[in-house]
Structures are given as structure tokens and as C-alpha cells.
Amino acid sequence: MSRLPPLCIAIMSILWADSAQAVDVSRYDQQSAVGLCQAQLPAHRDSLRARPLGLTNDGTTPIFVNCGWQGDDAAGSTRGATRISVNVSNGGTTPIVVNCTLISGFQSGFVTQATYTPKAIGVTAGSGGFIEWVPAEVAGAPATIKLPSVSCQLPPKATLQYTGKVYSENVGS
């Protein structure tokens, strides 16, 4: 009778392993803006300081910075983003407003179509804040944001510190 427990375990293991299904695990990728973003115009590049912990506008006029994430547009893929975020801060002595927009679109030759989701955040001197986007805010309400980009207007002394992306990954059974 002492063989009963191992046999039961064997039976249950086989049935359990066979009935197990693929599992989606939630992931969060965080990356410094220096590795993901760059100035849109050459003139803006002159004012931009690319430091390990962030991109700072050290000039005297606003500049535009663009960031692009990895995406997955495969049919049926579950790896699209469920949340995109940027962290910005104000190294100046007066309050600022940082404008950013999420962009999801395509361009090829003469064809350009893109969906924009603009947002703004007020940041007091010496502090920071997040701007976040979720799929429900995007026009057309996609289930996920598959190929996200972000464009930000950085006033003088504003820093784009880091970016974040939440998505699901299928890790099998």
C-alpha cells in the first residue's frame, strides 16, 4: 500500500501537465531616455544634453524629443503595450508645462497615417512627474498599443528622465 501515494502523484502529474495552458505574464520595461529618445531637429540637438539619467534641454527655447519602443504587430500577438509612461522633471527655478503625445501610426512612401494622444503636465521647480497612456485613451480604442512612439516638447531646463512600458508576454505552459 506504500506505493499508492507515488502512483497517485504520477497520475495527477500527467493529467495536470497535459491540461496546462499557455500563460501570459505581465512585464514592465523601464529605460533611461538616453537610450530610447532623440531630438527631432538638428537645431534641437544643439540644446539637448544626453546624460545617463536623462535628456535635458539646456537651451533657452523649447525643443522636441521623440522616443520609440520595440513593438510586435504580429496578428494575434499579446505583446502590445497596456501602459506607456514617461517621467519628466524640472531643473529650473520656475514652474513649467511639459507637453507629450503618444503616437501610433504607419508611414511608407507617400502614405502617412497616425493616431495622436496628446497630454500635458505641470511640473513645479525641482520636482518631477509622470505622463501615462493606456489603450482606452487612444482613438479607435485598440486592445493594446502595438507600435508606440512618444513625442515631447521640453521647455528650457526640463529633463526627460526615463520611460516605461507594461505589456504581456506569452511564456508557454
Binding site: N99, T112, P118, Q153
Partner: peptide, 19 residues
């Protein structure tokens, strides 16, 4: 791109076409 990045006070979202 500059216009739409700065249009947060006006728009919740927007669709852009360039032809």
C-alpha cells in the same frame, strides 16, 4: 508633429493624415 504634441489642452486624441 509639433502641433499635435502641443495640442493636449485642446485635444484628447487626434488622427493625422499626410498625403
Amino acid at each position: 508633429n509639433f502641433l499635435l504634441t502641443s495640442s493636449g489642452p485642446q485635444f484628447a486624441n487626434a488622427e493625422l493624415f499626410i498625403e
